[in-house]
Write a protein that binds this DNA or RNA. Structure first.
Lengths: 228, 228
DNA sequence: CATTTTTATGACTGAGCGGTCGTATTCTAA
DNA sequence: TTAGAATACGACCGCTCAGTCATAAAAATG
């Protein structure tokens, strides 16, 4: 945790330091990020930095907690109007949150992904009341429920499928950004909001259909399944 | 390219240097890898290293070419006996190669993945006669063919699905290793070959079924499709 | 043998890193 | 106004890094 001196700072200065750190970590990941660069860009002295933070890892952890907070707030904001929702509606919502997060906060998403790659275990924050935020765990719960509700094919290996969904979940945002590259200018100047662009919606729907129904025109496994 | 001095070295010394470099790059990726560490572990002088290689990047490129060569050889070895193969048999084979490579050469696979993350464009080697090795491109071709042969559902967005397959392709090996962690000892002492373990085969089959048929018990998209 | 070319060596350079510390400034409060 | 606490500061430390270079050893050549 940052020292209390950091929280005594004016909000603007604190947010400036955080913003500079987010830029640096997003661009260079933990190892490549430089405290010297951060203090230079934030216009503070090296010594001041160490009045605010114990060390580099302390700052990094603080930034990670910002990422978490930001993501949780996005989840809250996107809570669907209807609390009654079928299995795949829920799946769609879960993944949509990840996509939104990546589209709206690409730097934070980059930091999160780097952190995940560095340490794939990472169960962060107090284990007390907060529910698990790890995507794989959430997908496993989802699949278990889905099979109980007869929505998901019973031959599916839950653990494998959870991994499979998580890998899509972690990468789809980047793909959409790349796919929309030709509209990059329009997105940059704000005349197009990538998150609500019809093409984004179409692609997202197509991916969800793909997850639900597979890519085969007449899947053998499905024939076997219905012939029983 | 390494200098000719490097290729004048005895095979054993050359392979020692390459093996040490592979360890270092696999463990620390390009940025974190240290030439000082490599020369120390290989038992050569710093100056000698720079008789062999132009710079760090030169060594790295050489290692990447080893990775490519190794992978291509594995592809050749795994060429299926029957040249006649249906669409999904071919898909299964493509992904199986990736899995095998990751299981048999985890360090090389790690290096390849790091390189991919650093620069997702990376069309390596001479563009002359060699076919594209980038997985996404190969999947796109595969899907195009599949739709032409009426094996793949026509509503599938080819570009999106190619990305989707590539993301699975790049991660499935790591998942299998993690999933087999309880057999780690048996694998390490050679009494179990992870690549041919029945559980590995089952999981792989399950994943392929999932890609073909989706996870839904009765996919809506498929009902729509057949009702037309 | 002598001469020339090739290879091996490790001390060294300059730069950047995370982190420290004595001092200067600013703030707080009596 | 002044004493003391909190904060700001940047030169500096020890270290590691990629890369260089003068020199020495070894190999090849004649």
């Amino acid at each position: 945790m940052p020292k209390k001196t950091f929280f005594n700072l004016s909000v603007s200065k604190r947010e400036l330091i955080e913003a500079v750190a987010i830029d640096e970590f997003a661009a260079n990941s933990y190892r490549g990020a430089s405290i010297s660069q951060i203090v230079a860009k934030a216009g503070i002295a090296k010594g001041s930095f160490y009045q605010y933070f114990v060390d580099k890892r302390d700052l990094y952890n603080h930034i990670l907690s910002i990422v978490q907070t930001c993501k949780i707030e996005m989840v809250k904001d996107m809570t669907p109007p209807s609390s009654v929702m079928d299995t795949f509606g829920y799946l769609r919502w879960m993944i949509q949150v990840a996509v939104m997060f990546e589209l709206k906060h690409p730097k934070l998403a980059k930091i999160e992904q780097d952190a995940f790659l560095e340490n794939p275990l990472a169960n962060e924050s107090e284990p007390g009341e907060q529910e698990a935020t790890d995507a794989t765990v959430r997908f496993r719960d989802f699949l278990t429920q889905g099979i109980m509700h007869d929505d998901i094919a019973p031959w599916v290996d839950i653990d494998m499928a959870a991994f499979f969904l998580a890998s899509v979940y972690h990468q789809i945002g980047q793909y959409l950004i790349a796919r929309m590259a030709d509209k990059a200018n329009a997105i940059a100047n704000g005349s197009v909001d990538i998150a609500f662009d019809p093409l984004t919606q179409d692609l997202f729907d197509n991916l969800m259909d793909l997850v639900e129904a597979g890519i085969a025109r007449e899947p053998q496994i499905r024939k076997d399944y219905y012939s029983k």
